[in-house]
């Protein structure tokens, strides 16, 4: 089925599915498939929000390093802060496309897209930690 539907129960398998023109955006998500189990939609939304908070935490880290680690060499301090902000911007930029891809997959009953950024982010945060340790020692 390729027609988007606004019927919240359409995915639950109760009765025939009625294709409805949808006003929900983005269309790339809502014009395909059927409404998934609401629990999955909520979980996807919370994952999106967790990425946004991760991004915000990296912004605050950058500000804290820039403001507090005064004993470190200024160039190193500034580089770490810039690294943290750039990492945070990458998290925030990819959060919504990731949400949309996952929601699309849920609507189409396909496997979720693999979490490419998660591993890279873990490595980058570890590296950031090592640099901060060097900067304050």
């Amino acid at each position: 089925m390729t027609t988007g539907t606004d019927d919240p129960r359409a995915g639950a398998g109760t009765g025939p599915r009625r294709p409805v023109r949808t006003r929900r955006r983005p269309l790339q998500v809502y014009r395909v498939g059927n409404e998934p189990d609401p629990r999955f939609t909520f979980a996807n939304e919370r994952t999106f929000l967790a990425w946004i908070r991760t991004s915000l935490a990296l912004f605050v880290t950058a500000a804290a390093i820039d403001a507090l680690v005064v004993s470190a060499e200024p160039a190193l301090r500034r580089s770490i802060a810039i690294g943290a902000v750039v990492l945070g911007i990458v998290c925030a930029l990819t959060a919504f496309p990731r949400w949309a891809a996952a929601e699309r997959a849920l609507r189409l009953g396909r496997p979720l897209p693999r979490a490419r950024l998660a591993g890279a982010l873990a490595l980058a945060v570890a590296l950031l930690g090592v640099l901060i340790a060097l900067a304050v020692s």
């Binding site: 606004d6 019927d7 919240p8 129960r9 949808t22 929900r24 955006r25 983005p26 998500v29 809502y30 409404e35 609401p38 939609t41 939304e45 999106f48 929000l49 946004i52 991004s55 915000l56 912004f59 950058a62 500000a63 820039d66 500034r78 802060a81 810039i82 902000v85 750039v86 945070g88 911007i89 925030a92 930029l93 959060a95 919504f96 949400w99 949309a100 929601e103």
Partner: peptide, 30 residues
């Protein structure tokens, strides 16, 4: 069962505000 679940507009806006905040901070640092 009365309406559809909320869509992706608010997430888009929140992501945009977050990116904007990051860019402001980046511009300051640079």
């Amino acid at each position: 069962g009365r309406t559809a679940l909320p869509d992706g507009r608010l997430p888009t806006a929140v992501a945009a505000v977050t990116v904007g905040l990051g860019l402001m901070e980046l511009q300051y640092l640079l």
